[in-house]
Write a protein that binds this DNA or RNA. Structure first.
Lengths: 247, 247
DNA sequence: CATTAATTGTGAAATCGGTCACAAAATGGC
DNA sequence: GCCATTTTGTGACCGATTTCACAATTAATG
């Protein structure tokens, strides 16, 4: 609340709170308590209050929070209170899904231009926009002044695109390509990785095999043993216990 | 590394390591050290070693890790070593991007069926699949036996879809709808929220305004003051310091 | 106006995740 | 075979985040 940097998890949750509040306002609720928030999105009431405490005091003891006022405050904190033009690079399937994504507007994000390097696509309409030549990135953004860009190109092209975006004055990148971008320190990057999310789910499934699988599969306990040194030396250091993949 | 639960951040990073390893194998590198990994994806060498230590020992001191062996081990850990059929619900733009997503196959994920509730779409081709009636979810999955599903429908329909998926035996859900799903405890959910990611980026931009904006805008320090009680009572509790949004 | 019930904001404690540093292991050179 | 060099695996430390618990505040009731 006084001088601390705000933890990223707090920022992420703020967006969730905002969504809940918007729904609540839609439903005509004028105030919400932290316990209501917990019911609606599963984030604990204490967590919610602690998160808000980084920014000030917004509630009334005994009453809760004014839906309308808290919406306005969170929107200001997150800079969602003004139009934000964005650049989209990559006019493929994913790009098409993004230009058609209806929820951007509620948060005042707007895709202001689309770029691709495929000369067959350049000049064609894409949603309500015309696909621009990626070579004109800097030139076009001199007009638009976008600070945020979305990368929706294959991994092999992503780094080059990122470099061009930085060159064009972009300071924040939402990256859908499965690759680790290298950018100067003043540029923020957030990665969205379907594969990563699926991998985490897949891991958890493996931990608790489904009933019909349990008796035909024993791979959970064999499988990934230590390989190399597994069956030989090592394990002599201190009191090496059961080496190998557990669980 | 003996009985601890594996932290989720570790699981997420595992997917990144795998990507790096796959690229390295492609490039003909037979071994990699933890410092190489750090160079390629920015995750610290110590972090990498610690992450692996949850699962066993995979490297050779003085040498590094066999690319091929480590790929195989991580694939086993993440259950990426066998085909995983998935159900996709929602045959809109996003669904189209997902059925066409080329990277699923490298990790053996496969969209085995697509569902929608729009009778105009049902029966039409969608990529290489035919759109099925959502009402046939359970019936169809009795054949497929998928444990993972992807929700790519509007938020308003997401909870109902989730309920039907659980009913159809699904145990893991990748949710693209901006809503908090309620599912039984044995079902895992991961949310993908563009808006949340953009909101975090937007916040950081607000913290460090771009040069050309700095002298025309002063909104950073005014803006979201505490509202309610801001200018009146309160602040009497202990030694309440400067109330209101900072920064 | 006093009492009760609800709810906030926040220090303090607990938990969790990340970094460091170093002993142990592997390799290459001589 | 021995020494120098590299790199692993991990315990110990440290910082960040979450949870807890409670004093303070508000509103409602009689």
């Amino acid at each position: 609340m006084t001088e601390t940097r705000v933890p990223t998890p707090t920022l992420e949750r703020l967006a969730t709170y905002l969504r809940v509040l918007l729904d609540a306002r839609e439903a005509g609720l004028e105030t919400l308590s932290s316990r209501d928030i917990e019911r609606f999105c599963g984030i604990s009431a204490a967590q919610f209050r602690k998160d808000l405490s980084y920014f000030g005091e917004f509630g009334k003891p005994g009453v809760g929070y004014s839906t309308q006022q808290l919406i306005e405050c969170i929107e200001r904190i997150l800079r969602l209170d003004r139009e934000q033009p964005m650049l989209l690079v990559g006019a493929g399937n994913l790009g098409a899904a993004l230009v058609g994504y209806p929820n951007f507007r509620a948060h005042r994000f707007r895709i202001a231009a689309v770029f691709d390097n495929n000369f067959v696509k350049i000049g064609r309409p894409f949603g309500e926009l015309i696909i621009e030549d990626i070579a004109r990135l800097k030139e076009v953004n001199a007009q638009i002044g976008a600070q945020i860009a979305i990368i929706a190109v294959p991994a092999s092209a992503a780094q080059e695109v990122a470099d061009q975006l930085v060159e064009a004055g972009i300071r924040a990148i939402l990256n859908f390509a499965p690759t680790s971008l290298k950018v100067p320190p003043h540029v923020h990057v957030r990665n969205v990785s379907f594969l990563q999310e699926l991998a985490v789910l897949s891991y958890h499934l493996a931990q608790e095999p489904s009933p019909w699988e349990r008796d035909t599969e024993h791979a959970l306990t064999d499988g990934c043993v230590s390989n190399q040194r597994a069956a030989n030396s090592r394990r002599t250091r201190t009191t090496r216990k059961q080496t190998g993949a557990r669980r």
